[in-house]
Computed example of a mutant assay.
Amino acid sequence: MLCLYTVFGMELRMTTTFPSISISTDRLVLRPFDMADVPAYLEMMNDDLVTAWTESPLPYTQVDAERWVRRIAPAERTQGNGIVFAVTEFLTQRLVGSVRLLNTDWRTLATEVRYITAPWARGEGYATESVLALAEWLFRDQRFERIELRTPADNTASQQVAQKLGCISEGVLRNARIARTRTENGTDGGWTDIRTDLIVWGLLPEDLEGVAEELADAGGYGGPHDWS
């Protein structure tokens, strides 16, 4: 998609959609979702930690998963809001998470990133690895200037991903997100909404310099709490 805008009387063209691509790392492939991902995606989205920290429907149904794969995820790209990737293992092709860009501002070349890791893949550093690959592609190939992360104040795992990537904490949005917590009857599937602060992190192209090397020197991407 192209849009036109005028600067000092000159008409300029600006791309407003990301290309449909896949991104590979040593261990992962980031690619568009397909219908074969539905069973694993459905299981991932019904995990307690995913339910607690995302805004997904509750409970997450087969219909929700199919709608995500068929319509919602592809539309994020075609409508210019961002792009959605299924994160899969290179060797096994199994789904281990998702990563997405959203709230993209094409004028300022800035966007927000969110990520989820499946419960069967936590502790491997997949969130850090996939977001790093996406950020490198975004800054290098798409010439973007800023990525923003917003992590709930109590979600220390998500904050660790931001820190590993070299993100800079820029402030707190008070009471800005609704999360979920189990009720006293949690064994019966009960959940209740709670308010939470959001920590805002910024990542600029220069912040990524040397990050991959530092992670390698530290033993890789993984960590016991690296899930979302």
Rank of each mutant, 00 (worst) to 15 (best):
R143W: 02
A157K: 11
L134C: 08
D154H: 03
L134R: 05
S169M: 12
I178C: 04
V172D: 01
T151I: 10
I178Y: 00
R180S: 13
L173M: 15
L165H: 06
R174F: 00
F144H: 06
W137M: 09
D154L: 01
V131D: 07
S130K: 04
K164C: 11
Q159N: 04
R150K: 09
S169P: 08
R177W: 00
N175E: 08
D141G: 08
P152L: 01
A179K: 14
R174Q: 04
A127H: 01
T156G: 00
R140Q: 13
Q159V: 03
A133W: 05
Q159L: 07
A179E: 11
F139Q: 02
E184N: 01
T183D: 11
Q159F: 03
A127C: 15
V172Q: 03
A153N: 12
E129L: 12
R150N: 12
T128N: 15
I147N: 04
E184G: 07
R143N: 08
R177F: 05
D154I: 10
Y126T: 04
T151Q: 12
I147P: 06
R177K: 07
Y126V: 09
Y126C: 10
I147Q: 06
R182G: 14
V172R: 11
S130Y: 12
S158E: 01
E184D: 10
V161S: 13
W137E: 10
E184L: 08
L138H: 01
D154Q: 04
A179D: 03
I147G: 01
N155P: 14
L134W: 06
L165F: 13
R146C: 06
T181H: 13
C167E: 05
G125P: 06
Q159C: 12
E148C: 14
G171T: 06
R182N: 06
E145I: 05
P152D: 13
I147K: 05
Q159H: 02
R143H: 14
E124A: 12
T151V: 15
E148F: 00
E136G: 01
R146A: 08
C167W: 02
N175F: 05
R146I: 04
E145T: 10
A179I: 14
R174V: 07
L149N: 02
Q142L: 12
A157R: 14
Q163K: 15
A127M: 05
E129K: 11
R182Y: 03
S158C: 07
R146Q: 10
G171K: 04
V172P: 05
R180K: 15
L134E: 03
S158L: 09
V172Y: 00
Q160N: 05
R146S: 09
T128G: 07
D154S: 08
R180P: 07
V161C: 14
L149R: 12
C167F: 03
T183K: 15
V131K: 05
D154T: 04
A179W: 04
R182I: 00
A135R: 00
S158D: 06
G166V: 15
Q160P: 00
E124Q: 13
A157Y: 02
E145A: 01
K164M: 14
